[in-house]
Amino acid sequence: MTDTHDPDKPDVPEPDETPEPRRGQMRFQDAETTKPREPTLAEQRARRKAIEEEAERELQEAAERVQVERKAKTRRRVFIGSGVTVGVVALVATWYVAATPDEVTANCVDNNGVLAANENVCDENYARSVPGSYYSGGFWFIPLATGGFGQYQYNYGGTVGPGGRVTGGTATAPSGRTTVKTSSGKTVQRGGFGISSGGSKGGSKGGSGGS
């Protein structure tokens, strides 16, 4: 049809039978087989921007904290008559000055620097959900079945050696243009709705529908 197109004739669709109404797609997704699609360009940009904004916000907050602490310190120091030194700014600066790699692996380690059996214990969402857990001094304290607590935190950028011992790296979360990946690679949170298997929320139920 394109070959025999007559340039004098306006391009009007033929007045044939009414088009069949379009039927929409029906697809299903499940956790086993569905794989994330490639992020679109716009999404990659938006994500990077969001990360940058987050970093900026953190930086700003850190700067504000510095301000507050400095004020607190100056006030105290007025009495002891000493000069003002700022430590936190230096720390914040190291996040940016240090040549941070583009991607940093976070390993969940205990207070001896050994990989935790369950990497989720460093994940805030998970750790919070464990009854009796709490966060202190940069560590999540998770009650152990054998009594007492295990202490866990993420190590960023360390190297895993023999026996699961992680060397190098830092406990300070990197900021800026760095993507943090856990070994399971999660960046999207799931399970915030519904009844997760093994959960106790809502007790037994037979259907969420109406009465």
Binding site: P21, R22, R27, K35, P36, V188, Q189, F193, I195
Partner: peptide, 27 residues
């Protein structure tokens, strides 16, 4: 009616904390 549809369990719905939006299993 002509709409494209995707079914997934509510337990599988993801939240993208950076882009602040809900995502399906394909993200």
């Amino acid at each position: 009616s002509g709409l494209d549809t995707i079914g997934l369990a509510i337990e599988e719905i993801g939240w993208d904390p950076l882009l602040k939006r809900f995502v399906d299993l394909e993200e």
